[in-house]
Computed example of a mutant assay.
Amino acid sequence: MNRAKALFEDLALDYRPCGKGKGIAGKKKDKRWERRFEALSVAEHAKQDWDMLKDTEFRERQLHNIENLAKGYGFSSIWMMVFREEPEIKKSLIQIFPGTAGNCFDEEAIPVRRPESILGL
């Protein structure tokens, strides 16, 4: 029983984002959810700006701004979700996030199954 309890505590299985409980929950709060929420808010604002500027002379500048924001805030999946209707932006995001395999996406930046994959989509 002591080994199970030790494992439970080591893995902080009693963790709650609100900081209540035992283990690391009462000592150190996990702030990743706040950073994800912040990235979502920034991405949504960037999408609004993109919608206003994509057909203007400021298109390239706004694309560059989006790339910089995405690199700075991270959470590539959030940016891909917010810009799901914008293949050009998604292609750019695929390029700027290190470790993103380009062969996992088609020409419209839609996820595809790799030929050698054992996992399905």
Rank of each mutant, 00 (worst) to 15 (best):
R114S: 11
R16K: 13
G21K: 10
R32S: 13
K29R: 13
A39R: 00
N65D: 03
R16Y: 14
G26P: 02
I94E: 04
F105S: 01
A12C: 14
P98I: 06
N65L: 04
G72L: 05
K5S: 11
H64Y: 06
F8E: 08
P87M: 03
A101T: 15
N68Q: 13
G72T: 07
L53C: 12
D106W: 12
I118W: 10
R59K: 12
I24D: 05
E9S: 09
R61F: 08
K28W: 09
P115F: 06
G99K: 09
Q95H: 11
I78N: 05
M80L: 15
C18K: 15
I110D: 06
A46E: 03
P87F: 03
L121Q: 12
A46Y: 09
A12G: 14
R32N: 09
A46W: 06
T100V: 07
I96W: 00
G23F: 05
N2E: 12
P87C: 06
V82C: 01
G23N: 04
A109H: 02
F75W: 02
R35F: 14
L121Y: 11
I89W: 01
H64A: 10
I110L: 14
G23R: 02
Q95V: 11
E85C: 14
K20I: 13
L69E: 02
G19A: 09
S117N: 04
